[in-house]
Deep mutational scan, measured.
Amino acid sequence: IRCIGVSNRDFVEGMSGGTWVDVVLEHGGCVTVMAQDKPTVDIELVTTTVSNMAEVRSYCYEASISDMASDSRCPTQGEAYLDKQSDTQYVCKRTLVDRGWGNGCGLFGKGSLVTCAKFTCSKKMTGKSIQPENLEYRIMLSVHGSQHSGMIVNDTGYETDENRAKVEVTPNSPRAEATLGGFGSLGLDCEPRTGLDFSDLYYLTMNNKHWLVHKEWFHDIPLPWHAGADTGTPHWNNKEALVEFKDAHAKRQTVVVLGSQEGAVHTALAGALEAEMDGAKGKLFSGHLKCRLKMDKLRLKGVSYSLCTAAFTFTKVPAETLHGTVTVEVQYAGTDGPCKIPVQMAVDMQTLTPVGRLITANPVITESTENSKMMLELDPPFGDSYIVIGVGDKKITHHWHRSGSTIGKAFEATVRGAKRMAVLGDTAWDFGSVGGVFNSLGKGIHQIFGAAFKSLFGGMSWFSQILIGTLLVWLGLNTKNGSISLTCLALGGVMIFLSTAVSA
């Protein structure tokens, strides 16, 4: 259960009878995928790494000078000259100064003066180019299975845990398959586009800190620079940016070097996208990844198990997540596992009318040892309800109150669905055939309105939902006002479609 501690969480529900669903994975976010007769899966884009970055340009932001020398000439005696002028490691300046009897010249006039100092770069920052084909995306998957609280967001041991898996995709191999043991396998067909235009970005490294910066900004930095990788004795261009020549006297000129420019660069980098280094690879934390999940090989585990009949206890007080759902960790005293956990939410304890829904599909106890633990997640209705676990006299209950409203949740879900469709863009549509167009249209309606429909009408039977949709269509056909007619027709059509397409 990876997503319960992530604030940016998206719930995606598969269409009834569908074998695939489109998701948008982004750094700092987590996606929970639910479908009829399929286990619930949490998917998170953990890291995006980039390798084989080529150094484009380096800037010196802290330097020192040494070996200063000057040469001067009297008027009419030609130009002052130093051998160091031809050495690229030196920074030199030529000027004219007033000369006369007082400073060793027989004539009054302008004399030539040249001053040089050896330039040494102490600290530099480097910009590297990123090729999209060198990106690698690491995705962690977790099935809502027989897990306890100690396994949440624990990325170790996934090789031997059938509840978890790690997959890596690249532009050259965008397809992967996550093996989930008894739950089958989940196929991923990803489109490795981060949403960032790397043709316009460089990877900047300064003092063990890293950013993504725009090329134009990078090339306009007014500091000494050299092109390409460091060859040991780089040729620094624009050395004068960190060196200041003071007022010249008759035979000498003082040279000083400016202080470190790291603070000024940090100020200019305010708002830039931060990154990290992992050995020789860069780690990015921006952008998104679009994936199509193929769920035809994914299956529920323990459908044929019998119900657990022994007593359950709450190991922890049920807690609310950031998303309005409830996490419950229970301990089973029996030894008759594997068995299914009898769990439901009810409005009252007399009729036990089921409300809400299970995020953890078909929760089971897989071990036959005593005191096995299991964590599950529920989506309670707004208002008061009861969490009921167990059967008969051994069942345990917990009162729950959820604040908020169904309308607010439906609106929030619609906005999130619209954002998801905007990110998917043209990849969500198939114009290759008439059937493809209608299929894409259905998927689009489901992406945007599916979660809201589930919130508003999830407790009704599909037949009642179709009746309401048919009534809206009838009202649309018999209303003389054009805008009201079109609105009723659209709402009725969407409702009829979703009542037959969205899983219960």
Rank of each mutant, 00 (worst) to 15 (best):
G337T: 12
T49H: 01
L358Y: 10
Y61D: 06
L298N: 04
I139K: 07
G392K: 14
K110F: 06
L258M: 15
K110E: 11
S185T: 13
A176H: 04
T406C: 03
W400I: 10
S86R: 15
C339F: 07
L186E: 06
F183I: 12
N208R: 11
M460V: 13
F119R: 03
G111L: 01
H214E: 09
D379L: 00
R252H: 09
T353N: 15
Y332W: 06
V114C: 04
R2I: 07
P39C: 09
Y332F: 05
Y61S: 01
Y386L: 13
M34E: 06
N481C: 08
Y90H: 12
C105I: 05
Q85D: 04
P174H: 07
K123E: 08
G271R: 12
T233N: 15
E244G: 04
D42V: 06
L269P: 13
R420M: 11
T40F: 08
L45E: 09
R9M: 11
F463N: 04
F11T: 02
V434R: 01
E276P: 01
Q89P: 01
N238I: 07
R420T: 09
V257A: 12
A361I: 06
C121A: 05
T360W: 09
T47M: 15
F108T: 02
K443Q: 14
K419Q: 14
I468F: 08
K297T: 02
L141G: 03
G232K: 07
C121Q: 05
L25M: 11
G184E: 13
L96N: 08
T360P: 07
E244I: 14
I468Y: 02
T369P: 02
P381Y: 04
S129W: 05
L298Y: 10
H446Q: 10
G104E: 05
E320L: 02
V31N: 05
G232P: 05
S499N: 09
T194E: 00
S66K: 14
E177A: 08
N481R: 01
V265I: 15
T160W: 11
S286R: 15
T120A: 14
H148G: 05
G383F: 06
R357V: 02
G14S: 09
C121I: 03
M375Q: 00
G383P: 03
Q253F: 10
A275Q: 01
F198T: 09
G450E: 06
A333W: 03
R420P: 10
C30Q: 08
A280V: 13
H27R: 09
D71E: 15
Y203I: 13
K454D: 11
F198D: 06
L180S: 14
L456H: 11
V388L: 14
C308W: 06
I387D: 07
R416H: 11
T233Y: 14
I466S: 03
L472E: 10
T267V: 02
A229P: 15
D247F: 09
K340Q: 03
P354I: 05
L471C: 06
D189M: 10
L322E: 04
C190D: 09
A410N: 08
T115A: 10
H446E: 04
E136T: 15
I448P: 01
G492Y: 03
I130M: 13
G282I: 13
S146D: 00
G228D: 06
S286I: 01
K166F: 08
L284F: 15
L180N: 10
M125C: 11
I221H: 05
S304I: 00
E274A: 07
E79M: 12
W236N: 06
L273H: 10
Q447N: 10
A275S: 06
G195Y: 08
V473S: 00
V343C: 15
S385W: 13
K281R: 15
G78F: 05
S455N: 13
Q85F: 02
F431A: 03
P363G: 01
S368T: 07
C121Y: 09
T397A: 15
G106L: 07
T470K: 12
A165V: 13
E191P: 05
S199W: 02
I468C: 12
K124M: 13
H27Q: 07
A333R: 12
Q331G: 10
S368L: 00
M125D: 07
T414R: 01
T351K: 04
N237T: 02
V21Y: 02
P381E: 04
